[in-house]
C-alpha cells in the first residue's frame, strides 16, 4: 500500500488526527507554561522575557511553522471527517440513544473543534498578528503583557475566551484518550494511566488558560 493510500484510508486519517492532536497537546503545555508567567506578578517582566525568546529564537520559529501545519491538518482533516462521517447515515434515526451509550463530548468533537477554530482565529488576531507585525514590519519591541491587559479589559472577550477554553477542555478530555486509541494503545496496563493523565492534563491546562483572562480582567494581576 502506498503512503497516500494509507493516509487517505479511514484509519490513516484518524492517525493524522491522533498525531497532530498529540502534537498540539504538547504545544499547549508550552503555551500554558509561558502564559503562566504572568502569575509571577512582576508586571509581566518574566512573561515578556520568554515571549520575546519564543518569538525570536529561530529554532522555535521553524517549529512554529510545523505547529501551523499540524493545526491546519488537524482542523481540515477533522472537518472533512465530520462531514464524511455524517454522510454515512443518509436517513437519521428518529430516536437517538443520547448519553446512554457514549459521552456527549465524544460525539461532539466536530462542533467543539469548530468552536475552537473560531476561537483560534480571534485569538490569533488578538495576540499573534501584533507580535508578528512588530517582529517583521515595525521592528519595535512588543509588550505582549500590556496587550493582554488591554484585550482582557473587555468583558465580552473574557466571556468569549471562557467559552473557548471550556470547549477546549471537553475536546481534550476525549481527544487525549482517543489519540492513544487511534495509535493503537489500549491495554488494561495503561488505560488507567492514560485516563487519569488525560483528565488531569485537560483540567490543569484549561484552568490555567481560564485564569488568565479572568485574573487580568478582574485586576488580580497588575
Amino acid at each position: 500500500m502506498t503512503w497516500k493510500e494509507y493516509f487517505t484510508s479511514s484509519i490513516g486519517k484518524k492517525l493524522v488526527m491522533a498525531f497532530t492532536g498529540l502534537f498540539l497537546i504538547l504545544f499547549l503545555i508550552v503555551h500554558a507554561t509561558i502564559n503562566g508567567m504572568i502569575f509571577f506578578d512582576d508586571n509581566g517582566e518574566m512573561f515578556n522575557y520568554y515571549a520575546h525568546f519564543f518569538s525570536h529564537n529561530w529554532i522555535i520559529r521553524i517549529m512554529e511553522v510545523g505547529l501551523f501545519v499540524g493545526l491546519i491538518l488537524h482542523a481540515v482533516q477533522g472537518l472533512m471527517l465530520t462531514f464524511q462521517n455524517q454522510s454515512k447515515r443518509p436517513v437519521k434515526y428518529a430516536v437517538n440513544p443520547g448519553n446512554a451509550t457514549s459521552k456527549w463530548y465524544s460525539r461532539s468533537m466536530g462542533i467543539l473543534g469548530s468552536l475552537l477554530l473560531i476561537f483560534l482565529i480571534i485569538h490569533l488576531r488578538h495576540f499573534w498578528i501584533g507580535t508578528k507585525a512588530s517582529l517583521y514590519i515595525t521592528g519595535e519591541e512588543h509588550n505582549l503583557f500590556e496587550e493582554m491587559k488591554i484585550v482582557f479589559s473587555e468583558l465580552w472577550v473574557v466571556v468569549f475566551y471562557s467559552v473557548g477554553v471550556i470547549s477546549l477542555c471537553w475536546h481534550l478530555i476525549h481527544g487525549f484518550k482517543s489519540a492513544f486509541q487511534s495509535i493503537g494503545i489500549n491495554s488494561p496496563k495503561y488505560n488507567g494511566m492514560i485516563q487519569t493523565v488525560g483528565i488531569a492534563y485537560s483540567l490543569i491546562i484549561c484552568f490555567a488558560f481560564l485564569m488568565m483572562p479572568v485574573a487580568l480582567h478582574l485586576g488580580w494581576i497588575q
Binding site: S10, I11, K13, K14, L81, Q84, N85, K88, R89, P97, T101, S102, K103, S106, R107, M109, H174, K177, S178, Q181, S182
Partner: peptide, 8 residues
Amino acid sequence: GACTNTGA
C-alpha cells in the same frame, strides 16, 4: 464511516 472512539 471512520471511528471517533466514542465507544457506542
